[in-house]
């Protein structure tokens, strides 16, 4: 390796590591602050490592907001949204990709058109529907509109379209009905697509902010997003408590990400390549 190439290699690593540092620093600072006492956090000049590492801030989070309930709400709503979307979108995607019926093209275009519209457009009427159903401040209200997804339908339809017709025709000749073909033959074949949908939807459900902010008002009915907003309103100057709340909100998704890293990243990469 020539000298010039070695220097450029070194520069490359310096730039990359600097970028990583900038990316990761807020996370590190969040964790470090969360273990400090609130007096230490506002010390000037600041300490880097907590002088008296403490879980006090975490305790304060649980004292101010019903964090256990909030965490549970986030988990349950995310799981329900994922299950609903996987079931309904997989079914619809199969129908649109594989079965001929009058109006198929038109209905599919109408489904796609939902993707073109920014979500604010739907919010006020959706809120009024949920209100009419007496579902404000409930789990049902949190998840109901998110169970149906044009994006998920579109994504999985692409996967169904790429499966050769022979797979299905063999099953039809064996006398299987559509539901049997769907569950026994087709669903296993689109598993990578379903995994991608699960990851997209879990991220969306977990991180969603505006809808739960609108729908929930009682602290014990909230999900993590609006609860963090409440926390920063109550503990205005208690930074360790705010950071502890943020840590608790971030960790479950982080664990999921570490376990399913490959699927997370490949799902997104795939979306970009296919357009």
């Amino acid at each position: 390796m020539s000298n010039g190439r070695r220097t450029s290699r070194v520069v490359l690593y310096i730039v990359l590591c600097l970028g990583v540092l900038l990316t990761v620093f807020p996370f590190i600072w969040m964790v470090l602050t969360s273990f400090k006492l609130d007096g230490e956090a506002v010390q000037v000049p600041p300490t880097i490592l907590p002088q008296h590492p403490s879980l006090q801030a975490y305790q304060q989070v649980f004292d101010v907001i019903p964090f256990r309930a909030v965490l549970l709400n986030s988990v349950i709503s995310t799981v329900l949204i994922v299950l609903g979307q996987v079931l309904f979108c997989t079914m619809a995607a199969y129908g649109f990709a594989r079965i001929k019926f009058p109006g198929r093209q038109l209905i599919f275009i109408l489904v796609l058109s939902v993707l073109m519209v920014p979500s604010q457009i739907f919010l006020i009427p959706q809120y009024l529907i949920i209100q009419k159903l007496h579902l404000l401040d409930t789990m049902g209200g949190l998840v109901l509109p998110s169970l149906f997804s044009a994006f998920g339908t579109f994504l999985l339809r692409q996967f169904f379209l790429s499966i050769p017709a022979e797979m299905e025709e063999a099953a039809i000749l064996d006398g299987a009905n559509r539901w049997q073909i769907f569950t026994k033959v087709m669903v296993p074949l689109v598993q990578p697509g379903i995994v991608t949908l699960v990851i997209f939807t879990a991220k969306y459900g977990w991180n969603n902010f505006m809808w739960p902010l609108i729908i929930t008002t009682t602290p014990s009915k909230m999900t993590l997003g609006p609860a963090l907003s409440t926390l920063s309103g109550v503990h205005v100057n208690n930074y360790p408590a705010q950071m502890a709340g943020a840590v608790l909100a971030v960790i479950p998704m982080l664990i999921l990400f570490i376990v399913f890293q490959k699927q997370f990243i490949e799902g997104v990469a795939h979306a970009g390549v296919k357009g």
């Binding site: 993590l224 997003g225 971030v250 998704m253």
Partner: peptide, 9 residues
Amino acid sequence: TMPAAIAMV
């Protein structure tokens, strides 16, 4: 990462 948490940090 949850945008609400990012914003707090």
